[in-house]
Amino acid sequence: MLHFILKRLGLAVLVAFTVSFISFSLLFLSGDPAAALAGETASGEDIEALRRLYGFDRPMLVQYGEWLWSALRGDFGESYYFKLPVASLIADRLGVTMLLGVCGISFALLTAVPLGVVAAIRPNSLIDRAALFISVAGQAMPSFWFGLILIVVFAIQLGWLPPSGTGTWRHFVMPTIVLGYYAMPAIMRLTRAGMLDVLSSDYIRTARAKGANETRVLFRHALRNAIIPVVSLAAVQMGFMLGGSIVVESIFALHGAGYLAWESIARNDLPTVQALILIFSMFYIVFTFLADVLNAWLDPRMRSS
């Protein structure tokens, strides 16, 4: 197990470096950063002055090395727009995004896994069909539309929940549902398919032949095997929720890191965009790594491969 963890950790670090290089160079592929920074009315001399000021005239590898070295120490430079250190800017916003992401994925898992299990126990039953309907609806409904419907119903009509902001836990109820509902269908379908597959396997018959009751068969023998692909999927979706919650954050005015990313892209705020891409990528890498470790714990065959 330790060997496996070390191997995956090494792989994760390699991926992290690759991603950091790509995210750094992407900004240079999108055009001349000095020209973009100077604005449309700037003269050629102004652009050259900016280029020297920000060091864009040096070789790219040198710039990357310098940027990476600072980034490793938590210094992502200064935001062009806010004129503040990017690190503190992101730190202020990341809490909301992470809270939302954790709530979203928990909501998705806590609804999708039980629904998937029940659907698999009774395939083609009323519950199975209802679960299918819920998941199809979730996949078909755009987040912004679903979010607006919730606001209209629960904030405006019923007045149960605040429509926007971040003050209390009640502010997070609707964003959690919208974000979680988006991830739910895939998790549910995968759980259902996995359970159906596992429940028809020989070792489930063996468990029953031993005299295990249905609860034990379902949860101890079946779910542990069926949940393995779900763990990998949930990790990717968790990463997606942190990086891609821009829509949900804008609807509910949550001003998290996703919203900041959108603002920074629109304002050509390169240091902020670079830092956010790097941080979101790191989240993906960390979640994938954690999912691998969890899966290796669940499935001994993965440890040896």
Binding site: S201, D202, Y203, R205, T206, D299, P300
Partner: peptide, 9 residues
């Protein structure tokens, strides 16, 4: 089927 009759986990 001894290959599949034991729980792999």
């Amino acid at each position: 089927e001894p290959m599949t009759s034991l729980n792999p986990a």
